[in-house]
Design a protein around this nucleic acid. Sequence first.
RNA 1: GCGGGUGUAGCUCAGUGGUAGAGCGUCACGUUGCCAACGUGAAUGUCGUGAGUUCGAAUCUCAUCACCCGCUCCA
Length: 520
Amino acid sequence: MAQENIYTDPATKSMEELVALCKRRGFVFPASEIYGGINGFWDYGPLGTALKNNIRDWWWRQMVECPPIGPDGEPVEIVGLDSSIIQNPKTWEASGHVGGFSDPMVDCTETKKRYRQDHIEVLIVDDKGCWGFPENNIDYIAKKLKKANVSRDDGTVKNLTDIDTSEYEKIIAPDTDKPGTLTAPREFNLMFDSHAGAIKSDENKVYLRPETAQGIFLNYKNIVDTMRVKMPFGIAQVGKSFRNEVTPRNFIFRSREFEQMEMEWFCAPAESAKWYDFWKHERMRWWESLGVDKANLRFRDHDDDELAHYSKMCVDVEYKYPFTAPGYGELEGVAHRGCFDLTQHQEHSKTKMEYFDQAAQLAAKEAGKSKEEIAAASKYIPNVIEPASGLTRAVLVLLCEAYTPDPDRPAGVYMKFKPKFAPIKAAIFPLVNKDGMPEIATKLYHELRQKYVVQYDAKQSIGKRYARMDEAGTPFCFTIDGDTLNDNAVTVRDRDSGQALAERLPLDQVDAFLAAKIAE
RNA sequence: GCGGGUGUAGCUCAGUGGUAGAGCGUCACGUUGCCAACGUGAAUGUCGUGAGUUCGAAUCUCAUCACCCGCUCCA
């Protein structure tokens, strides 16, 4: 029989079996399966939807309704938002999603670096070679040129877009020493597009959002103007995003339609490092609150060269998925976005994003700062710290984490969800269908269903009913037996031990028992 | 995007050219005394999809789709 709290290494779990269980028990189905499915899309079944909603509600509770206590001992302020999936397409030009990723890119097969084709210039020196370098920055390859004993004046400079791909084999890429490592230019745009209106034309082309974050930036000014928020504060949003991934893989880990839980934390630039650190650790605490084993979670700081165009600092919270073990895979990114997004939207929309910080002004005045210093401290475009996690990845993590093989059980496996997140909180069974047991069980069921997701089942043998609940991850089964008629108490069958609790539970305490377990 | 593998009932699979199968699960009825019990009965398939070869295709050929593994990719 399984022991409680045994550490089950994800590496020992089979994704194939987990996917099978998810389908068998109604957690996750392949999308449009009757037509052969569609790559990169998944449907959430009854139990999967419940699990997803439970995680989402907990995130919302912990981020918006009851956010954490800040470093100064006061609760931080975060408001909620639900922005549109389709926005004015200029949004994506400002954010860099169109400009940056619809342009052809070239890869360096040697260093694995990727460059925008039109951002590379090439110095061509007849007979000596061709050197690629970042646009307007020939100093970047000064050492290489010196070594080759050539100077800028020895040759001509051309943009890479003006060079035929057949000539690429002669080019030495910016970060290598040997020629011919650049691939032909390829289009990379991960955004799905569509058309708003009946007529398909370039004028009414729109995009499905590739992240929920931009919807928050677009509403930053609305929130500041209407919600009486003061810096620092956050805006949180949960919703679907769409990315036309090259290779959807690993069940729901990388899908083309997915759900994000993002919060943008706006703060004074001078305080951004403090908040970055705060949110980094708060987010890890949240993941642990889901019941995820600490041994399966870790931080991974991004190296400078893998930072996205908007980011100053970025750390991933990673989980040891069965398909990455013994390595880890991304779960949530906490990014320091600086003032990139608001500045971009200010420039493109001509809407002022500056914030007047009266508290900072007062503090600077009291500190006897100069006029210039006071002005700088009190008026600024806020910096943004962004904890961005995947809700559908959270579902995957809980599925992986809960999946617990146990050869001693009839099902061979049970789903060890924390009661708070379990799709079904409890099941109510009459041991047999006679002697008044169904009547008592039905009464208990009707009471409990008012407050909890519970199931009543009187069919088939008691063992079979327990086994079904094991696979659904239902933490408790209340069984009405012959003794109930005398002692007004039920047997509590505990999922994790696979056995009945030693103490019988009085009927009038079942509600309180469940409430306490779910609150844990 | 490249290479390899897989696809038959809800699940696991058998079926190498001649009527579509088994076990488990599911459902109904009976029975029941705590971990997939037992008896009786029932439902469930465009054999992933589409073409082709053939008198006849789950089976042979081609294409295509989905999933898995390894590369690649993942702002």
